[in-house]
Amino acid sequence: MLRNLIRLHSRTCYAVLERWPGVCQGGQARLPTLLENAKAYSTATSERKKFYQDVSISQGEDGMFEINLDRRKLKTPGGKIFTVPNEALAIAVATEWDSQKDTLKFYTMHLTTLCNTALDNPTHRDKDQMITAALKYLETDTICYRVEEPPGLVELQKNEWDPVLHWIEKRYNVVIGSSDSIMGPQIPEETKDTFRQHLGSYNFWALTGLEYVINQLKSVVLSFGLIDRHLTVEQAVLLSRLEEEYQIQRWGNVEWAHDYDMYELRARTAAGTLFVHLSSESSTVKRKLLQD
């Protein structure tokens, strides 16, 4: 119950963060006014008529990739030219724009949204602030909070969550632990320092994606499992929704609420994971090209 409330709360926060992508029209940048912004914030699920036919990508002089909609360059809501660091990400974003039918459904374009957030940085935060924000989730990590009843769920949480917890404790050589009190487990400072140091090696784009994944899964542990390729998206989402799945087994599945939520969560989590992997691998790809 508490978790659902938190999830609901943070969903709306994210809807507020998501802004629609602006596009350069007729060679002139279309800067959204304050009023337009307010409108964009309030209707995260808004749609817009499709105004282009062809989507293509091109590489700029600085090696960054751009998206072209009918020869016009895509721009971010902040008015910057939309650029991404590697081809794979550019193609994935172009595919999102290309797959829109008659209307642009921005709520299905998760990678575009993530790129916009990384490019514009609407909350004006630096890396340290993002790492702190991400690690704050560790204190209330989903898989560290256990229930005391009913016995079936207690058993399920123990069987499903403990292996992941043991994996991360071994992988990073840290102590996290779980608790069934409302205060949650006491996370030692050393654990946080280890993670802080590890996250310091990520670039700004990867951190944007990672924070998004943590926000979706409500768990630092599961997010690390996903980023380190210990879990698949389906597994991570299942573990994140464990209590809901238990209740579904007991009371039945409701397609327009449970399945709807699950697919949305899967899509968002997959987008975030892919975003982290693609934006942190660009350097290795370049090295390979040099060797050739």
């Binding site: 998760h110 399945d259 697919y263 899967r266 899509a267």
Partner: peptide, 12 residues
């Protein structure tokens, strides 16, 4: 992950 993204977006 990409397959999951495409399939989930479609289902959603």
């Amino acid at each position: 992950t990409y397959l999951c993204l495409l399939a989930s977006t479609r289902h959603h």
